[in-house]
Design a protein around this nucleic acid. Sequence first.
RNA 1: GUCUCCAUCGUCUAACGGUUAGGACAUCAGGUUUUCAUCCUGGUAAUAUGGGUUCGAUUCCCGUUGGAGAUGCCA
Length: 529
Amino acid sequence: MSVRVRFAPSPTGQVHIGNIRAAIFNWLFAHHEGGSFLLRIEDTDLERSTPEAIATLLEVMEWLKLDFDEKPPLYQTSQVQKHLAAAQQLLAQGDAYKDNKGGNGEAILFRIPFDTARVPGVAEAGPAETLVHPEVPVVVSHKGVDYAGVSSKGKPAPGGATLAGFLNLVVKDTQDNTLFTLNDHLDEVKAGKEFTLPNAAKLCFTRRTITYHDIVKGDMTKPLDSLKDVVIVRSDGSPVFHLANVVDDITQKVTHIIRGDDHVENTFKHIMLFACLGAQPPQYGHLPMIVNAAGKPYSKRDGDAFVGDFRTKGYLADALVNYLSLLGWAPGDNREKMTRDELVEAFTLERVQHGAAQMDIQKLTNLNGLYIAEMPEDDFRKTALEWIATFDWGKTIDEALAAKVCTLMHSRTKVFADIAQWEYFFNDIPAYDEKACTKQLKDPTAITALKSLLEQFKALDSFDAATLEPIVAAATEAAGLGHGKLNQPLRVAVTGSAIGAGIFETLEILGKEKSVKRLEYALANKVVQ
RNA sequence: GUCUCCAUCGUCUAACGGUUAGGACAUCAGGUUUUCAUCCUGGUAAUAUGGGUUCGAUUCCCGUUGGAGAUGCCA
């Protein structure tokens, strides 16, 4: 059977970086296996899902070139009848029951099956004991075993689990006297009878576990006595995530579920749901989380963790995909900068890391710089021009001048937002950096030299780098300054900044008129006394 | 509290049970006879901790510590 995976985000606001990483891994896996990559939009949370968020999501996926198969995507809201039908099926099979636990009306709960033969991966783990607090009575019913555990300070602690967790249950009191034997009352309990047992101190039972093989994390096991029955339909009649998710995965014939770490615990329940719904559970692979620079999970407020922000800061889609692929995964041969094809070829879930990964903006930025550097000149200019146009100073510019600036600044561009610093090429008088002025425009010798340079500039016919270099060198020497010592003062006087491309190339692009004007301006206004 | 999982330089990561524990980003020093960037050279920097198993442990097992997730009529 060919591989079918899905990305199933809920469109609530911006697209989170951790979320899109899951999409990338699914996409990579699907392509590596020659399978299908599906998109399912889990928009059942009517209060938080918005059309704008859906649009944002689609936009982001298109930007990152994460194309999906079988368009249009499956919208979960269109599947509600199927979800509800599944709930009815479970109800009819006795795998679900109605309960008014929260007091809001009757909800439908999925019952972890007591007879586990249907469920793959369930095994008996041997006898087990759980201490319970005698002050709180133990209640045994078809809904589960309700009790209070004992905290380290001897106080009652919240406890309770599904009935299936307690095979061969015997409840004992502090004197070890038997209070209740489940096997004597199993049919009554299943039929709905509730037993309330005061003064219980101990639960003795045969522990059962459910195990599944996680493609990234390995074998995962959980005891049934730490599982609770789950609400699958709310009292208002709407299906809950667990049900909807599983039913949709069945209808979309998903073979591998690759999702965030935070779903591991749900997996055990989902496998049971698949089984009770008569479907073969898919394979699972859980991705580690991405955490922020503080090592904490990204909260909804971590603005810089949104994919859209990386786009507006001028990161390239390919660079972002490349970097994100490397968060929690590595090909194993020291390659880092990789094309899509190389990533697809090398990607396996088995090599995915088990622990959380921290996002490193600097490394992303460096990688982005590498991608920009290898852009063909024409592509770079085209993109850079678009960026220039987004700035106030870039609305009306000389295209020929801009083209020259692009060529000059290409290797210096790490992210396109850096282009904000190109303003001095285009305006009349640049913004002067005070620190730079203080450092470079205070030496009287240099100032005198700049003044003489200004006069020479005025007299020049051609104003290109080759002409300027010897002139500046001569002026430097004439002033008694060391080689190149006039370059920085000249740069600050003309550009306002101490950093930039080669000064002679910069002067040439600026042209005689502007250079002279700025030199005059700086000498008149910016010299530090 | 209980359950599940995780742990190699600051960060991302590599290392069939045998390596001077490798690479990249960041950082530091130097070079590319002007700054910044690119490029080149070199340096600092890690197996959380205590026990086992083994001739030999980053690797396997157990404990501890630390971290994350789950424990919702959120997804």
